[in-house]
Design a binder for these strands. Structure first.
Lengths: 214, 214
DNA sequence: GTCTATATCCAGATAGAC
DNA sequence: GTCTATCTGGATATAGAC
């Protein structure tokens, strides 16, 4: 009698090739722009012909979708690795810096995740759920730091989005807007402290980074 | 002897057709996305075949370039029509509202003017000069309102860019971020008043809207 | 799984008749 | 200025042999 192997070597190899294709796709879009991705070129980069890619992805949009999910997962992991102090002034700056740096370091990824300029591409529900989860974590996190309410949250995201957009559009590779992050967060905190009450959850009851992620 | 006509009716007609083509192009990109513009479709919309467009524009990029210039001119004119009071709290809000509304009302135009996601398209020097001029006017204007220095200007533009980006990406057609403009400008003014001195130029010496445009 | 060959469709741009 | 016809090249996707 033949025992069923506990590892499926074929599936593992399939996954590895998929990952290789995605990595090549990232390199291509970083070099030539998100919209310029072509299956022929992508296949050539991994030593295949274009039709072979269809053994790994159903369509070009499926590749974009996998990249969209990867990008969001990368952001989530980077955020999970952050250490927080419970001090809004410190933590909001770390969060903001994380996001703006993440945006600035890869314009193509920024375009895919946040600008959606690929004609006809919409992320699948599963991939989109990742993006929703990130926003939800941010909401919880800011709430834990004492920043509550839709308006306060929207103002924060607008500020971060603006710093990212300007950095990418007008000083790619530089730090002209990155250097404004601390200033911007101070401005934000001054403001919401003067208009709303800001009460970080006290130390004993504070949510941990892990809990905030739920 | 034949007098030279003072009007060139042929040139006028040519200009009119050019304008008609551009108007059709705007309608197309608003309906189907900036990147989806095709010469065949555009030509059909104005009752021509694709090759005839080449009598009016040298290339597809030349059409984008003309649209880029038109968009910037529209923004410039809208700004020139604004009335200013000299009060930074009032004027900065009017400026901000103008810009965010301008962005929100036409996503395709926003993408063309501020995001540059068309592969291979770069505005011609003449068209780009318009964009530079707008930024320069903003700089002068803010200076006249007492907001000076690169950092202060960059923070302002980031805020406006962020409100626009979020409004377009997450609430197109709505006003969720538009409603935050006054709040954001107040936040900004509170901040720079507490960190830099803000001294609007006194009434007698204040630059007029026309002067600020130089 | 990968290939060749191909289907199908589209694009921007040009030549040259009228 | 506008047209037809065409060039050239690209794309995604599929069929079917190996």
């Amino acid at each position: 009698m033949l025992d069923t192997p506990t590892r499926d070597r074929r599936a593992e190899r399939h996954e590895a090739t998929r990952a290789e294709i995605l990595e090549a796709a990232w390199e291509l879009v970083r070099a030539e722009g998100l919209a310029a991705l072509s299956l022929r070129e992508l296949a050539a980069k991994v030593g295949m012909r274009a039709p072979s890619l269809y053994s790994y992805f159903d369509s070009k949009h499926a590749i974009y979708d996998a990249m969209f999910a990867e990008g969001n997962r990368a952001l989530m992991e980077r955020r999970a690795a952050l250490e927080f102090t419970g001090d809004p002034g410190v933590d909001l700056k770390r969060l903001a810096r994380l996001f703006v740096q993440f945006s600035a370091e890869d314009p193509a990824r920024y375009q895919l995740l946040f600008q959606r300029t690929i004609p006809g591409f919409e992320p699948s529900p599963e991939s989109y759920a990742l993006a929703v989860r990130i926003l939800d974590e941010t909401r919880r996190h800011l709430a834990a730091l004492g920043v509550r309410g839709q308006r306060a949250l929207d103002l924060y995201t607008a500020m971060i989005a603006g710093l990212s957009a300007q950095q990418l559009a007008n000083d790619p590779g530089g730090d002209r807007w990155l250097r404004l992050i601390d200033d911007a967060v101070d401005m934000y905190l001054e403001h919401i402290r003067s208009t709303h009450a800001v009460h970080p959850i006290p130390r004993r009851a504070r949510v941990t980074s892990k809990e905030a992620r739920r």
